[in-house]
Simulated assay, not measured.
Amino acid sequence: MNTQNIMIKLTIRSATQLLSILLSLTLFSLSSISQAAPEKLVVCADKGYWYPFVFTEGYEAKGLYIDMLNDAADRLDMKVSIRPMDWKKCLRKARAGKVDGIIGVSYKDKRAEYLEYPADAKTKKFSDLRLTQVEYVVVNNASSPYVFDGNVTTLPQPVRVPRGYSVADDLKNEGISDVNTKSKGDHGTLLRLISEKNGSVVTLATVAKHFEQHRLFKGKIKTQKRAYKSKSYFMAFSKKRPTDEASRNEIWDALTAVRTDSVLMETYMAKY
């Protein structure tokens, strides 16, 4: 074999090796991009009335959690699309990976099978990376002599909770045999309470306060002074449309920065 042929073969081999390296780098780069935080975050939110945290106004998601997420997205130069929908549909969309996540969801083992939560969501009552801490209360008919003393098993039954809400499982686990989840939202649970004239409703303290002044319920319901429990609520991510851990933490940190800015939060709350 002459020198010229040897040089040609070496050149071809070098070019092949270079092409292989470039292809590997390209694939690695594409893989990294696919795992990065999305340029546009698509999340769903409960369209029910969870004032002031999440509610729907003119087919648009509104509320404190919406303000917080929009602010956090601005800090990260990220676009966000928030879609209000029926709660169970929102959970299904996240399970199927049709949205990037859910804004305003509490921790539940079953949900953790398809949602990514902050590391302390299960173990801490007040998670460091929560959106807010939400207080639940018991509501009864105004004429009821019942007084809640903290013993959940004494609650007048049925205990009504909107369909798909995790607090229903909490009540069952604490010994309540008749938990009614026939209504889609708090408005429905309260209508059943006053029309059927029995049982209880468990809802957010802020929601109870609002409906006490509503024309349909004013003078007909009363909120127990002692709270039932409080829970941390989160921005959680779908495991079917995963972002890398660093990007999730970046978003949770931005949300925490918003929550811990007392001046900013007071500005938001003043709207509601």
Rank of each mutant, 00 (worst) to 15 (best):
Y165I: 03
T181E: 03
T256M: 08
T260P: 00
E212C: 08
F211M: 13
I251F: 07
T243P: 13
K229C: 10
T181A: 08
K184H: 02
R226K: 06
F234M: 01
T243V: 15
I176T: 00
K240F: 00
G188H: 04
E250H: 04
P162S: 06
V201N: 07
R226F: 08
I221D: 00
L216T: 15
L216Q: 13
L191C: 07
P162K: 00
E250R: 14
A168K: 07
A257I: 02
S230M: 10
A205P: 01
Q213I: 06
V161C: 07
F237M: 07
K184S: 15
R241T: 07
T223R: 14
V201E: 02
K220Q: 13
V207E: 06
K220S: 11
H210V: 15
A168R: 08
I176G: 06
G199E: 05
V207R: 03
T260D: 09
K225R: 10
Y228Q: 07
L191W: 15
K220I: 08
T153A: 11
P162H: 04
K231F: 08
V159K: 05
V167R: 00
L193V: 08
S230W: 06
G188R: 06
A168V: 12
I176P: 00
R259H: 08
A168E: 12
S232P: 14
D178M: 04
V167Y: 06
A208L: 05
H214N: 12
N180S: 11
V207N: 08
L155C: 04
F234D: 00
W252I: 05
E196V: 12
A205H: 12
R163G: 04
T203A: 13
R241Y: 03
E245Y: 14
K218T: 14
R163M: 10
M235D: 00
L190Y: 09
Q213W: 11
K222A: 09
A168L: 07
G175H: 03
S183Y: 05
R241G: 01
R160D: 00
G164T: 06
D253M: 07
K182R: 09
F234K: 01
L204Y: 10
E212P: 13
E245Q: 10
G185R: 09
K229Q: 13
I176Q: 02
R192W: 14
D244C: 12
P156L: 09
K240E: 03
K218Y: 05
Q157E: 10
R192L: 15
P158M: 00
